[in-house]
């Protein structure tokens, strides 16, 4: 109990110092969050006006597409509050910051996760996700029962963990390679671009990648399918609709085991 209080207190101290450092220039903080929001919105606006010219995309209308996007942005907004340290892990290793964490009497992953949080990205992405949800949720015909609300929350939880597992896996590769920026670009950011659209519209190879390799389809496509029940779901097993939370936990545990195994190969910076 005392240990738990101590951990909560430490998280509180970290959060307070993070907020202080991110928001020391308040106008700049608002503008930077707005900049992230607008940057991400641009892509959505292009998609929105493009889709207005067509009726549907493989059976998905424009609001259903926005709902798909909303899951992507909401999960990323939450993800980045907890996994900024893993996103920036390459820099942390190269700057010697990881050595600092190693030499402190606290859990390594705990420090990496709680010592930093990109609030601008969280507000920008999360804000856009919520906006898209508010715009689309009422127009896609979902009847929000208790079960569906619970499912939605579990899907968000699973979606965050799936992306967290990808971040953790890529961060762990830094221990071996020191720099994994291009791998992150390839396996996370490029995969995420595909994830804005229904996975069913893509070539089989891309579908396999999105389902079995970097499973972004479970972050937004299958959860959206559970709520919307579109016809293109017929191409996939029904089980996929329920896998997101389980897959999130399993993938995160696997990534964590890989992390633990790899730590013994870590060579201090400067060597």
């Amino acid at each position: 109990m005392e240990n738990c209080m101590d951990v909560m207190h430490l998280i509180g101290v970290y959060t307070k110092t993070i907020m202080k450092s991110w928001f020391q220039y308040k106008v700049d903080a608002v503008l930077r969050s707005l900049a992230v929001f607008l940057r991400e919105s641009t892509g959505i606006i292009v998609v929105y006006f493009t889709l207005l010219k067509f009726d549907t995309l493989n059976g998905w209308n424009v609001y259903e597409m926005l709902f798909l996007f909303s899951l992507l942005f909401v999960t990323y907004g939450i993800l980045i509050l907890f996994f900024t340290g893993l996103r920036d892990f390459g820099h942390t290793v190269r700057s010697g910051g990881f050595d600092r964490f190693i030499l402190r009497p606290r859990g390594l992953l705990f420090q990496i996760i709680f010592v930093n949080a990109d609030w601008f990205a969280a507000i920008g992405h999360g804000g856009l996700g919520i906006t898209l949800f508010l715009v689309s949720a009422a127009k896609v015909g979902i009847v929000w029962s208790f079960d569906k609300v619970v499912y939605y929350l579990l899907a968000i939880f699973g979606g965050v963990l799936i992306q967290g597992a990808v971040f953790l896996f890529l961060a762990t590769l830094n221990i071996y390679l020191l720099e994994t920026g291009s791998l992150k670009e390839l396996f996370y950011w490029n995969a995420r671009k595909f994830a804005g659209y229904p996975v069913s519209i893509f070539h089989r190879a891309i579908q396999i990648g999105m389902i079995y390799i970097v499973p972004f389809a479970f972050v937004n496509y299958f959860p959206a399918q559970f709520l919307l029940r579109k016809e293109d779901m017929a191409a996939y097993p029904e089980l996929f609709l329920y896998l997101t939370p389980v897959l999130g936990i399993v993938l995160y545990l696997l990534a964590y085991l890989f992390w633990r195994y790899s730590l013994k190969f870590y060579k201090s910076s400067g060597n």
């Binding site: 010697g96 190693i102 009497p105 859990g107 390594l108």
Partner: peptide
């Protein structure tokens, strides 16, 4: 490492102690 971190103080050239 974590256990010994309590008992040790380390000042190393390329391991900055501060944010």
């Amino acid at each position: 490492r974590s256990l010994l971190g309590k008992k040790m103080g380390c000042l190393l050239e390329k391991a900055p102690l501060f944010h």
